[in-house]
């Protein structure tokens, strides 16, 4: 039977650029160090590019190079975001409001204000002519992107999909998060980067890969996010035919609900330290893949990635980390 499998991953994060940097996990701050669009991608076509778009293009490029995957009409891209570049959107409006005439805005900056700018540019830079989708979400965005990806592949709309999420640090994003933060939530420093995996349907197992067994989500309606998360995880485990006690590792966004529900699991794997917003869950996912890679196993292991957002959304994915038999 055909399985939906993650066959590669890459990331640009405060740990630096690429898989090796992420596996090493040494960081000094919450920003991606020494990264600019121009330095990462060269001077051609990057003059007006946002950090967000550059992070996405570079990460997707690294993933294509690492995996050697085909691009073209059979390859799609699904990218999670909060709202695109909030800084670009608000700066553009500010320039309309403060210019001598309201239309004296910089036309070169207009594309940066559209939510799917990063995904569209990734397609242009890397020749990805398959489905190109942007999913707007909170901390669950990366898992919703995975869900959309699964349907694209199962419905034969793409043979493979590069699926990830990206965020940039900016004053506008920080202000919006500060303003909207619920009173009970403890602020975490904002972090940034892009993480992506390669999803494809394959019919045979290979060590080091991860099969996506189930993606599930729930919305909390009654003020008890813990119950919504529990229902979501239970449904995913049932769908994955995986007993809870077989889970080798979990990675959550760090909420109280997750700590309570998932307490006592053998291995807890952190995503990015700090608040990666819409990129949170994808960074958790690649953290699990990285941990499995650093501690290879001879048998299959199961892992659970959960995400809980302040808007009441919970989502999770159950993975089978394919072992390498002796």
């Amino acid at each position: 039977m055909t399985k939906l499998v993650l066959t590669g991953w890459s990331a640009i994060s405060p740990y630096g650029r690429g898989r090796e940097a992420f596996l090493g996990r040494r960081a000094t701050g919450h920003d991606v160090p020494d990264f600019s669009a121009r330095e990462a991608l060269g001077s051609k076509g990057t003059r007006s590019m946002t950090r967000l778009t550059a992070l996405a293009i570079a990460t997707v490029g690294d993933l294509i190079a690492d995996t050697g995957c085909d691009t073209g009409a059979d390859t799609g891209l699904v990218l999670g975001t909060t709202t695109g570049s909030a800084q670009s959107m608000m700066d553009f409006t500010r320039s309309s409001l403060t210019a001598a005439r309201p239309h004296r805005v910089d036309p070169a900056l207009f594309p940066n204000t559209v939510m799917n700018c990063a995904a569209g540019q990734c397609a242009i830079w890397h020749g990805l002519r398959g489905p190109n989708v942007t999913i707007a979400g909170g901390r669950t965005a990366g898992l919703m992107a995975l869900s959309y990806t699964g349907r694209l592949i199962r419905s034969h709309r793409a043979k493979r999909v590069l699926v990830g999420a990206a965020e940039e640090c900016s004053p506008a994003r920080a202000r919006l998060i500060d303003l909207a933060r619920p009173p009970h939530e403890i602020p975490k420093p904002l972090t940034e980067g892009c993480a992506a995996t390669l999803a494809e349907s394959v019919d045979h197992d290979a060590p080091g890969r991860a099969e996506i067994l189930a993606v599930r989500s729930r919305l909390c309606l009654d003020g008890s996010p813990g119950a919504a998360l529990r229902d979501c995880v239970d449904a995913a485990l049932v769908s994955a035919s995986c007993a809870g006690n077989r889970i080798w590792a979990v990675s959550g966004t760090g909420t109280t609900q997750e700590r309570e529900l998932l307490a006592g699991r053998p291995t807890w794997i952190d995503g990015l330290p700090g608040d990666a917003s819409s990129a949170s869950a994808t960074f958790q996912l690649v953290s699990v893949l990285a941990a499995a890679e650093l501690n290879p196993s001879h048998v299959d292991r199961f892992a659970l990635v959960t995400a809980v957002d302040t808007d009441g959304s919970s989502a999770c994915v159950v993975l089978r980390l394919i072992g390498s038999p002796r």
């Binding site: 975001t81 909060t82 709202t83 695109g84 559209v114 939510m115 799917n116 995904a119 569209g120 190109n132 989708v133 942007t134 999913i135 707007a136 979400g137 909170g138 965005a141 919703m144 869900s147 959309y148 909207a180 989500s217 729930r218 919305l219 909390c220 309606l221 919504a228 229902d231 449904a235 808007d311 009441g312 959304s313």
Partner: peptide, 26 residues
């Protein structure tokens, strides 16, 4: 918050066991 375009539909209809997406493909 852009994702509320879809999330609030679920909240309005009091539906919890639904998959919720806001698709930002322009």
């Amino acid at each position: 918050v852009a994702s509320r375009l879809a999330t609030e539909v679920a909240r309005e209809l009091r539906l919890s066991d639904v998959e919720i997406m806001t698709v930002g493909t322009a």
